Deep mutational scan, measured.
Amino acid sequence: MPVRRGHVAPQNTFLDTIIRKFEGQSRKFIIANARVENCAVIYCNDGFCELCGYSRAEVMQRPCTCDFLHGPRTQRRAAAQIAQALLGAEERKVEIAFYRKDGSCFLCLVDVVPVKNEDGAVIMFILNFEVVMEKDMVGSPAHDTNHRGPPTSWLAPGRAKTFRLKLPALLALTARESSVRSGGAGGAGAPGAVVVDVDLTPAAPSSESLALDEVTAMDNHVAGLGPAEERRALVGPGSPPRSAPGQLPSPRAHSLNPDASGSSCSLARTRSRESCASVRRASSADDIEAMRAGVLPPPPRHASTGAMHPLRSGLLNSTSDSDLVRYRTISKIPQITLNFVDLKGDPFLASPTSDREIIAPKIKERTHNVTEKVTQVLSLGADVLPEYKLQAPRIHRWTILHYSPFKAVWDWLILLLVIYTAVFTPYSAAFLLKETEEGPPATECGYACQPLAVVDLIVDIMFIVDILINFRTTYVNANEEVVSHPGRIAVHYFKGWFLIDMVAAIPFDLLI
């Protein structure tokens, strides 16, 4: 008679799926529990143990900040960024110097990925580790590398530091407007667009060049630039800015003055950032001319202004700041037409079709709590990747769950009947059967004279019903998954307890 339990259901295979997918890609990662103190490590794979030199037993239950890997060259700011990422709910990448158990130093890129439950609360953290440099290539500990984003994938490793954006290309926007319009339909740009040429040739750093990471940081200074100062900065030398009595002219307006920039070969870094931020506020060169004239017309309804409409929906549905990093990277690809469009465009503009998908598509409701890094690593669709929660398995109709209350009560009843059979069957065979043979035949009273025979008949009927119930009862397979398919249940029961239950259900007393 089957006594099969499996009270692990309803099970959740999400954690096993993450481990299996990460292991298949030869990654070095740990999984931490966000619900406990210090976000203790609950799993670390073999790749991480080989990377740091510690065994799994030495890593388990330690804080996922990996303070046991810190050393003299470990930056405090990087460690603080990892700790801050564990307090938030967004994906974050941090470069930090770690030390192995043998004392060797290596520069590592740590990717902190939160995993949320159905309520939107962070319950786990996945920390992925990628070695960037070994100890002989690690720089000085005073050099802070965590304020910069990861290198873009479309640049060669040897040319990542030679990417320079020439400031004269930004200063000569109005001069290039006529050349853009003359391109017409034969050019790649839309009317009114501004073409910015980027020099990728390796050259020595000069005062006129600005690194790509500095251009990325310009967006942080746009908020500090007032509207009046932006307007004066875009007017140009024809209309000098008016300053109040006793007030000095704005240095932001002076930063885009061609006369002032041409007199000296070098520009201050602050002026460069502010000038680029001011130019980015204009949607095209037409807006710059309109600002000089004193009238700013409404933005025209053409394809170039609607190019950012799908980007707005993608940004609203993005799951991490990696989408913004990807957008900034692609927006700086050289030799393309940049349409400086305000994100607050007309909502009635139709979304044009684009061959290049900048932001990841909208994630469906079932995966809105899973970050983009987890979705990318697992390579699963929205119909396959579940949320991290207890999910009731989908069972067929008329199927009994093996952990249901009805099955528990039924098993206790069958257990009592088995005990009765084990006690009274030998007793009936030894004593009652002998008395029946010696006594007179009682054929007239039937079952009324033999109450134990009636009980034995009921017990046999219950055993037959138990066999039928076992054909529709779920079970737990070797992978700790609840199986509810009727065919698989029948095959599993035939290979197991079916023969024993059938022999126990045969009414031998009635056959004798």
Rank of each mutant, 00 (worst) to 15 (best):
P300T: 06
V196H: 01
L170S: 14
D219M: 05
P202F: 01
R271P: 14
R76P: 15
G88Q: 08
D323E: 14
E208D: 15
P227I: 09
D355F: 07
A253M: 15
P251R: 11
G226A: 15
N12F: 07
Y43M: 01
F68E: 01
S182E: 06
H221P: 10
V180Q: 03
A169Y: 12
G139S: 15
A89L: 08
L165I: 06
I333W: 07
L15C: 09
A156D: 07
R271D: 10
L127G: 01
S379Q: 06
I19A: 04
L155F: 06
A85T: 12
N117I: 12
V41D: 01
I123D: 14
A142S: 11
E37P: 12
I359F: 05
P241E: 08
S178N: 15
I358P: 12
C108S: 08
Q84F: 08
T270Q: 07
E58A: 03
G88C: 11
R56S: 03
P386W: 05
D136L: 05
I18Y: 07
L267I: 02
G149F: 09
G246D: 04
D287I: 07
S284I: 12
Q11E: 11
A78C: 12
S272I: 07
G88D: 13
M133R: 12
S243Y: 15
D342R: 07
I31R: 01
G306Y: 14
L170E: 08
V36R: 07
P298L: 07
P310Q: 07
L349M: 14
K28G: 06
T13K: 06
A40V: 11
P245M: 14
Q335M: 11
G24V: 06
L86D: 01
G120K: 09
R252Y: 04
Q11R: 14
H302Q: 07
S320W: 11
Q247R: 06
R280H: 06
E95S: 09
M124I: 06
V198T: 06
F98R: 01
N128S: 12
I82H: 01
T305N: 05
M218K: 05
I358N: 14
V59E: 01
T65H: 10
A40G: 14
E274T: 14
S55E: 06
S304A: 12
P141G: 11
N33Y: 03
A290S: 05
L256H: 13
G262H: 15
C265F: 07
R312C: 14
V115C: 08
P241C: 15
I363C: 07
G187P: 03
A188V: 07
A293Y: 04
R56F: 01
C44T: 06
V115A: 05
F348K: 14
F29P: 01
R301C: 12
S284P: 09
L210W: 15
M137D: 04
C49M: 06
E230G: 06
C49V: 14
R312Y: 11
S239E: 10
D136T: 11
R27S: 11
Q75T: 12
R4M: 15
S261N: 05
F340V: 15
C105A: 12
D323T: 09
V196D: 02
S284Y: 05
E58W: 09
F98C: 05
D287C: 06
F125K: 01
C64A: 15
R328P: 12
G187C: 05
R164Q: 06
D287P: 14
G183P: 09
G306E: 12
Y99H: 15
P297W: 07
S209C: 01
C66I: 08
T174D: 06
R164E: 06
A160P: 13
P310K: 14
A175W: 03
A193Y: 01
Q376A: 11
E214Q: 06
N146K: 06
S284E: 15
S354K: 04
A9T: 08
L171K: 15
R252M: 07
G314P: 07
A9H: 15
E90F: 13
D197R: 01
T152V: 12
L256I: 09
K332L: 01
G262K: 08
V180H: 15
A89D: 13
K373L: 07
R252T: 15
L378Q: 04
S313L: 07
C49Y: 01
P63Q: 07
V374D: 05
A350Q: 07
P310V: 11
L109V: 08
E134K: 13
G381A: 14
A228C: 05
R252Q: 08
E118G: 10
S304P: 15
A79H: 13
V59A: 01
R27W: 10
V3C: 08
S304N: 07
A190K: 08
S207M: 11
A282W: 13
L200C: 13
K135D: 08
V113F: 13
